[in-house]
Design a protein around this nucleic acid. Structure first.
Lengths: 144, 144
DNA sequence: GTGGTTGCAAACCCTTTGCACGGCA
DNA sequence: TGCCGTGCAAAGGGTTTGCAACCAC
């Protein structure tokens, strides 16, 4: 389950990107923080080891990583960007109370959707990926 | 298919909100513009009839309408807010090329998801609503 | 060596906020 | 009339940009 530091180097190099300490640290941060960190949280995390990293660099690197499919941007209805290190197909639980976004992995659901859209084409549109937004409330958030 | 202006008045009043020209105009704008307008597009549209409306008011009213479930916010991975006047359960096509977001209505899909989650509960989470993000490319955007 | 990356800081722009006036109920 | 809603303008804050120094290849 634990990802080795060396893996980050490989992942970056494999994309034909230059391997820099900042890129490795940011990719590591997105994985280690988990729970869809904001750029701000990532910056804080990375500064523990790289105190001088500029926030502009963080945004720039995050953008590069997204473009090379090493991380994803999470869709939200708010105005801060969140990132996700899990590249396997998965879904998201949006809590309407605490605004937290949790991963929801469900292989069976993936298969169901794949199967459904195998027969039901969408006119003029080629599907690459699904993400189901499941909106509701965590039980722990019920009484607030 | 066409929504009467009087309907907007009713929709607003039904929520126990004061009916103001600005609220009617903004609710109308979200419906008439369609295609998930930004606050900016909405402001432009509304100013044709209400040249003096303040952008602060537009944001404030949009927020009120969202809270009273007269419109929805659309989730995006970018940093501008988009709004949606369709309140019935539906899904979204995200074009990875042109970044356009199109509505996708599919009653059969709704039923399929309802059915699936009737038997498959999510531990500690109560589901209120689904939105499937379908990411891909429109055929018209293929060669860019 | 050299072209892509980073650090820094200012600019940007979307959104929020505070306050006084205005208009809906 | 009372109070919520609006207009205005400034503040706020997340993200982008420009440029010189730096460093991975």
């Amino acid at each position: 389950m634990k990802v080795q530091t060396t893996s980050y180097r490989e992942l970056i190099a494999r994309q034909g990107l230059r391997v820099t300490p900042q890129r490795m640290a940011i990719l590591e941060a997105v994985h280690k923080i988990g729970n869809h960190p904001t750029a701000d949280q990532i910056t804080d995390f990375v500064r523990k080891a790289h105190p001088n990293i500029a926030s502009g660099t963080v945004y720039h690197v995050l953008d590069t990583l997204v473009q090379h499919q090493l991380i994803k941007r999470v869709t939200t209805d708010r105005d801060v960007m969140r990132y996700d290190g899990i590249m396997e197909s998965h879904h998201h639980l949006y809590c309407l109370e605490c605004n937290d976004i949790q991963d929801y992995v469900d292989v069976e659901l993936n298969a169901l959707l794949q199967e459904y859209f195998k027969s039901k084409k969408i006119e003029g549109f080629e599907i690459k990926e699904f993400v189901l937004e499941i909106k509701g409330t965590f039980n722990k958030c019920k009484n607030r």
